[in-house]
Amino acid sequence: MTDKNIVVKFGSLLKEETLEVIDSKILPGTIVLEATNPFPGYYEYYEGIQKDVKPHYIYLVTNKKCDLEEFTRATQKIMSYFEVDFHAAVGTMTIYNDVYHVIRIRRLTKYDQIKDLQSCYLEEGISLKSNASIPHNSKAMIQLDKFFALEELGEGYFCDHIEPNHGYFTIPQKLSWKQFEHLERQVKYNMEMFHFDASLGFIYDNFKAVDMIRIYAENLDLELLKKIKAKFVERIK
């Protein structure tokens, strides 16, 4: 692939994850959660494969919804001096009908970096939520608003330029989460033991919202994406 095949799009991703509260190595009184198994649809079939991959996806709970420009500029500045090349996105998570605003962090190399990163965001004017209680091992619906760096594999097919094993394909219409879950179960049942994790999203492209599905699996390629998309599309009504 050359840089000409890479497109950067803004959009959103919706997924369901189980989050664990982190109690140590964070700023006192703040709320930090971790998705210890961020791709359950795939890794549930391969027990233990993620044990040594830590930290996983980290969620810093903020005091209010982050203004996108303010968040982007703060993150841009922090990345210029922070010790690791982390990635961040803003979003919301819903747990038992309670909605929290979050910054999702990935690519930290040790838990000690969480507290330092929280301090950096505070210094850049991003306030963190305190004095709230979230149960351990909570199931959450997470919506992330983020930039996608996509390599075009073919019309309507992409792989992630930054994160390995992430693929995307467009779908002809918007799906509710309930519709998506139903379709996902049907597709997985008919995939001949090929396991993958999926989430729902869209990107803005050419003044339109283009719906898509994100697939995570080891050794994912265009052929597999085409097979999965075909099984989804034939069931979308």
Score class of each variant (00 low, 15 high):
Ser138Trp: 06
Glu163Lys: 11
Phe147Glu: 09
Ala132Val: 15
Ala132Arg: 07
Ser133Phe: 15
Lys139Gln: 06
Lys139Cys: 08
Glu123Cys: 06
Phe158Thr: 07
Ile162Gln: 15
Asp145Ile: 05
Cys159Thr: 14
Asn137His: 13
Asp145Met: 09
Ala149Met: 13
Leu144Gln: 10
Glu163Asp: 11
Gly154Gln: 10
Phe158Arg: 06
Phe148Tyr: 14
Met141His: 13
Met141Pro: 01
Met141Asp: 13
His161Gln: 08
Glu151Ile: 14
Gln143Gly: 02
Glu163His: 12
Glu124Arg: 08
Leu150Asp: 02
Gly156Val: 05
Gly125Val: 09
His136Val: 10
Glu155Ala: 04
Leu153Phe: 04
Cys159Lys: 15
Asn137Thr: 15
Glu123Trp: 05
Gly125Ile: 10
Ala149Phe: 11
Glu123Arg: 10
Glu124Asn: 08
Glu155Lys: 13
Ile142Thr: 05
Leu144Glu: 10
Phe148Gln: 03
Asp145Arg: 08
Ser130Cys: 06
Glu155Ile: 00
Lys139Ser: 09
Ser138Val: 13
Ser130His: 07
Ile134Phe: 08
Glu152Lys: 14
Ala149Asn: 15
Phe147Ser: 09
Lys129Met: 11
Asn137Val: 15
Ser133Tyr: 15
Ile134Ala: 04
Ile134His: 02
Gly125Gln: 08
Lys146Gln: 14
Leu128Met: 12
Ser138Cys: 12
Ile162Lys: 15
Ile162Leu: 14
Ala140Thr: 07
Lys146Trp: 02
Asp145Tyr: 08
Lys129Tyr: 07
Met141Lys: 12
Asn165Arg: 01
Asn165Tyr: 02
Glu155Thr: 01
Asp160Ile: 00
Leu128Gly: 09
Asp160Arg: 02
Ser127Tyr: 12
Asn137Lys: 14
His136Trp: 08
His161Phe: 05
Ser138Glu: 07
Ile126Ser: 01
Ser130Pro: 01
Leu128Val: 15
Ile134Val: 14
Ile126Asn: 01
Gly154Asp: 15
Leu144Thr: 11
His136Arg: 13
Cys159Pro: 01
His161Leu: 01
Leu153Ile: 05
Asn165Val: 00
Ala140Asp: 04
Ala132Leu: 05
Glu123Ile: 06
His136Met: 11
Gly156Leu: 06
Ala132Met: 03
Glu155Phe: 03
Ala149Arg: 15
Ile126Ala: 00
Lys146Glu: 13
Gly125Ser: 05
His166Val: 00
Glu152His: 03
Lys129Phe: 03
Tyr157Lys: 02
Ile126Leu: 02
Glu163Ile: 01
Ser130Met: 08
Ala140Gln: 07
Asn165Leu: 02
Glu152Thr: 09
Leu153Arg: 12
Pro164Ala: 03
Leu128Cys: 10
Pro164Trp: 05
Ile162Trp: 11
Glu152Gln: 12
Asp160Tyr: 00
Cys159Gln: 11
Gly156Gln: 09
His166Arg: 12
Asp145Ala: 04
Asp145Phe: 11
Asp145Val: 05
His166Tyr: 14
Leu153Pro: 05
Phe148Lys: 04
Leu144Tyr: 03
His136Gln: 14
Glu155Trp: 02
Asp160Lys: 00
Ala132Thr: 10
Glu124Ser: 04
Gln143Met: 08
Ile142Met: 03
